[in-house]
Design a protein around this nucleic acid. Structure first.
Lengths: 199, 199, 199, 199
DNA sequence: TCCTAAGCGAGACGGTACGTCTTGTCTTCCA
DNA sequence: TGGAAGACAAGACGTACCGTCTCGCTTAGGA
């Protein structure tokens, strides 16, 4: 906890711990991994572990920063794009499917077992932000929908997570482009400000 | 395990255990409840607990049978109804929201903390069946969509669970009818066989 | 407990239980045998067991009556004999060794493990009586020794039990006659009223 | 088990555990003492207990090392003495009685109940070694007796244990010197290489 | 270059929950 | 209706982890 991140050894230790956790997650269920497993794998003392992370989960959660950055960037650039309005929506979705496809092994491990709860929870948190931004940006004009905007956020994220999980469970057999297209079709049709409601 | 469910004492014990678990869930986090807590609350011996249930979770899962029955019935009667096609879809959703509203306390307790994972998982399982049936019944004519029907199932259930959870987290402030309407609008618009696909 | 020993079923049950215990003792350590083992082996309900015996040990202890009768008879007839004084002493010892040799299997099982404690305790109790009688009969004239007669009783019985146990542990390799002779030599020489004390 | 005895904390813990057990033995039956009782008394965690000892019995057995050392020393010095041959025999016996008298409380507690079995078993083991040495040292010249020397060892130890137990049961009323004299008289007369056998 | 504070490994420790086991009692059912 | 079957309360067992802690060793980085 108190360890300054600037110390070279400190960084080394954290890398060792993260790598150890990833290695273990690929081998066995997240829940079945104990702190002892991690420190043995990382060749690190028990107290050292707790000096850096409050718990196994804290270590785990730390690993989602890069993903967050990636998705935020895609979202930003999609929104900035000109052209078809729909194409500018849900800027994260394609990137997310592709990222998952590129790291199928680790994603499948994450989703598997109870560990998925934490992982998916973390991803859900990131995505919620993005969808919220998305809706804010594109539905600003639609005052009516705003009342329950958060419901729509949860709706979209929940649907996305479910599709993602299902897709990974099926070993990502569909190409990312295709599953993305299906998801976008279902969603955009649903959340589109119904034209006949606001003539 | 081996206990015959026909024994009157056996039934009594199971009721004691379920009631004890519910009482405790309303008091504290599911994960924080230990087997000892349950048996103390139920005034039951430790071995008796394990004679009936393999684990706390097994006991917990057992409590969703009634809900399942309720939802299945609503689904059936909705499908059997005449009239507006849309009204016949997703027959479970209104019943589910109302059931949750009627038992807000326990639902909120279920969703809270990590215990929600198990509870929601169980509900998700039940709903998946219903949505699958629904789609099979109403999209039978649409051969095209059938290819990825399971994706749609997961999409719908994921979206529903997310809305339900969010709604409960917000203390079910919206009337069930309203949140249900919002959900149905988003969903039915999304999964409707696009008119331009079948002119 | 309340069961009248005259009831036919009662007797049958007790026989079943005793036989079950013996069967089990030959198979595994006395201490490792549980009440459940016994009632399973005897095909009897749990309450039935407790209706007849207060505990596993009570059942076990019951099996030593015949042995007691046998030894008492030998002792009596030895004391009644005429002839060499020494030959009239410790009338039980030879019979005991022979009885053990004749039932080596069960004796070895009894002595083995911690169960031996109960068994040997029971035998010790029987032998103590006999030795006490013996000393009373033969040392009556020796008032001096009488003061610590009980010490001698314990001495003799302790020594005998140790020799018996050792002999059984060694699979009764020595003939009973021989080990008996060795025991008697050591003992009679020891407890003989020292001639120089009473000239 | 794995704990290195060199660690200062390790030693402290073991002392705590031993003291706790002794305290408890003086209060209640050995068999009635649970591991929980011990760790509560010692203010020690359950896992700590099992890190050091496999069981309550293992802890118990560990407490006889000092006694062993004491007796071995007495035996050695007795054998080394000059003078009367008999006085050099059974060098442990007087020390043992005196030690028991000096710690009557704990000895009586040890012998009481089922715990005595373990305690006496341990003492018996130590004494067997000593008697074996004794006989080897003093009967070396007597080849004849050697054949069944182990029988004699068991005979002597069994007799001694019985006398000791009886004496303790009687609250050690006789002075150690006297009970020792009685035991030695009975034993030495018995095991003396009968002079008339080897003229 | 030396010294000193910190990071670290190793692992003992107190605690707590687990799932299993056994005991002796108590309830139900059947013959 | 009385005894057999077995469900039950109670609680000990040995194991597995947790998060805290105390040790020395090593290893920078400032003096």
């Amino acid at each position: 906890m108190a360890a300054k991140a600037t110390d070279r050894r400190t960084l080394r230790t954290r890398v060792l711990l993260r790598d150890a956790l990833i290695t273990l997650i690929l081998k066995k269920d997240y829940d079945a991994i104990t702190v002892k497993d991690i420190i043995d794998q990382a060749n690190v003392g028990r107290s050292t572990f707790y000096a850096h992370y409050k718990s196994k989960e804290a270590l785990f959660r730390g690993g989602f920063e890069k993903l967050r950055t990636l998705l935020v960037e895609h979202q930003r650039s999609a929104l900035a794009e000109r052209g078809n309005a729909d194409a500018r929506r849900l800027g994260f979705s394609r990137a997310m499917f592709e990222h998952a496809r590129d790291h199928t092994e680790i994603y499948r491990a994450l989703v598997r077992g109870r560990g998925g709860i934490v992982a998916l929870g973390e991803i859900r948190r990131v995505l919620s932000e993005l969808v919220r931004e998305d809706l804010t940006a594109t539905l600003a004009r639609n005052g009516a929908g705003a009342a329950h905007r958060e419901l729509v956020v949860q709706y979209v994220v929940g649907a996305f997570m479910a599709v993602l999980t299902w897709w990974l469970d099926r070993r990502a057999r569909l190409p990312p482009a295709e599953v993305d297209a299906l998801f976008r079709a279902l969603t955009l049709r649903g959340i589109a400000p119904a034209d006949d409601d606001a003539p």
